[in-house]
Design a protein around this nucleic acid. Structure first.
Length: 425
RNA sequence: GGAGAGAUGGCAGAGUGGCCGAAUGCACCGGUCUUGAAAACCGGAGUGCCAGCAAUGGUACCGGGGGUUCGAAUCCCCCUCUCUCCGCCA
């Protein structure tokens, strides 16, 4: 969420930003509502002031007549106050509903445009030339009995799967590899709840229970299944004031991720590329409220993501996400797209990580603040999130990139400590 | 799941209808004293919202929501959380 007064005072810039991000909103209405809100607050404050004054007179009244007069006046004021409060609430409901729909401002260097207008910042690794037709992960999994899609469907429906045999070892190894690396780099490790309160989801910018929601919710409770540990790690500091000296808080969280993938039917989704549940190690950071501080961590997160895929020996490219594809909270977002030899006709890049700087957009809604030395008042911190390893996507990249001409799959060196085997098949 | 106790400012902890945004202590900041520090003493200090260029003023906030009342930290109802005991359980 942006700051209300910021929006009203920078209408042109906010409007331009909405346009770039493909969001249509009526900012005139917002300003109108802001003004109405001020008026009702002022009216209510004044009425309450009178109310206090009148009720303060009652114990000092000199006779019963005067007393009754004050009581009558007090009753009258109580009615007026409650009217003003109702009006204020009504205005605020519409106001904040609008405000919440406004996306974050955007980094000036982020490419403007839609998904197809993305900018490739750099590529790493050579895309191999195969003298045979490489299999995709579905065929590889079948060949080596690694994923049971039928069982997944029987148990939970389309979009669910069982990992089997070496795939389970690989999942655990990828998790261990990511967590160990992040710990070495000074991140505090967490394994986090798989459910969170709706208000926490909303605080991080996710919208549970809507008509096209990506979120599974638990009926009869205010809990939903998390789509990422970004939600739980961000929510972990809800309404807290963080010591400035403790920033940045660098966290790594392990959780399952659940996504309905509503509206995703028909998009390329063979195998485990787009599934309803997967395991993920997520990176999250709270930083001091300056772009210097959060940009620095943003870079650090991308560096770690690249290091992980380099050590897994998987070719990738880094994408600077264009405005139209940023999502609400992000100020800037980089994606890693790994080469997937079995994808499409002759291999394609597929998204495996993302890294977002959300500046103070999530922190405002979550109420995470810090007191900056030499400055008065508290300020909202900046938050960032990034993928260390999303198992389903990483699994595809590992299986497809490390397949051999004889159909076997080599386990990347860095994972063998945990898999205990160095080859599948 | 059952029984009981509790939730007040950064922390501890008073406060049972108006004199309470709230005593007191600790911690914190400024000063006096001191060669310096400590101690002692003096003073300051919460968060949000609204108005204002600002100084400032107003208002709200005693776990959350609702109610009673002219007036609620204080009375009533609901909820959440914490602690203790019992049961169940990976």
């Amino acid at each position: 969420m942006l700051d209300l007064n910021f929006v009203c005072e920078n209408r042109d810039a906010v409007e331009e930003n909405c346009k770039n991000r493909g969001v249509k909103l009526d900012l005139n209405r917002l300003v109108e509502l802001r003004d109405q809100r001020s008026e009702w607050i002022q009216k209510g404050d004044e009425l309450r002031r009178e109310q206090k004054e009148v009720s303060g007179q009652i114990p000092k009244a000199k006779d019963n007549d005067e007393r009754q007069t004050f009581i009558a006046k007090g009753k009258e004021l109580r009615e007026e106050v409650s009217t003003a409060e109702a009006k204020q609430k009504e205005v605020e409901e519409e106001l904040f509903d609008l405000l919440k729909q406004i996306p974050n401002m955007t980094h000036p260097d982020a490419p403007i445009g839609e998904e197809k207008d993305h900018v490739t910042l750099r590529t790493w690794g050579d895309i191999p030339n195969y003298d045979y037709k490489p299999l995709d992960h579905v065929d590889l999994a079948e060949k080596h009995d690694l994923i049971d899609f039928e069982a997944g469907t029987r148990v939970a429906g389309h979009g669910f799967y069982f990992f089997k045999n070496e795939a389970v070892l690989l999942e655990m190894a990828l998790v261990q590899f990511a967590l160990t690396k992040l710990r070495q780099k000074g991140f505090t490790l967490y394994s986090t709840p798989d459910l969170a309160k709706d208000e926490v989801l909303e605080g991080t910018g996710y919208i549970p229970r809507g008509p096209e929601t990506q979120i599974y919710s638990i009926t009869g409770t205010d809990l939903s299944l998390v789509a990422t540990a970004e939600i739980t790690l961000g929510g972990s500091m809800k309404d807290q004031i963080v010591e400035h000296a403790d920033l940045p808080l660098k966290m790594a969280g392990l959780s399952h991720c659940f996504r309905t993938e509503a509206g995703a039917h028909g998009r390329a989704s063979r195998g485990i590329y787009r599934v309803h549940q997967f395991t993920k190690v997520e990176i999250f950071a709270f930083t001091a409220p300056t772009l210097e501080a959060s940009d620095a961590i943003h870079q650090e997160i991308v560096d770690i993501e690249e290091e992980i895929f380099q050590e897994l020996k998987i070719p990738y490219r880094v994408i600077d996400t264009p405005t139209g594809d940023l999502g609400g909270p992000a100020y800037r977002k980089y994606d890693l797209e790994a080469w997937m030899p079995g994808r499409g006709e002759a291999g394609e890049y597929g998204e495996v990580t993302s890294a977002s700087n959300c500046t103070d957009f999530q922190a405002r809604r979550l109420g995470v603040r810090t007191k900056v030395p030499e400055q008065k008042g508290n300020q909202f911190v900046h938050t960032l999130n990034g993928t260390a390893v999303a198992i389903s996507r990483a699994m595809i990249a590992v299986l497809e990139n490390h397949q051999q001409a004889d159909g076997s799959i080599m386990i990347p060196e860095v994972l063998r400590l945990w898999t205990g085997v160095d080859k599948i098949g």
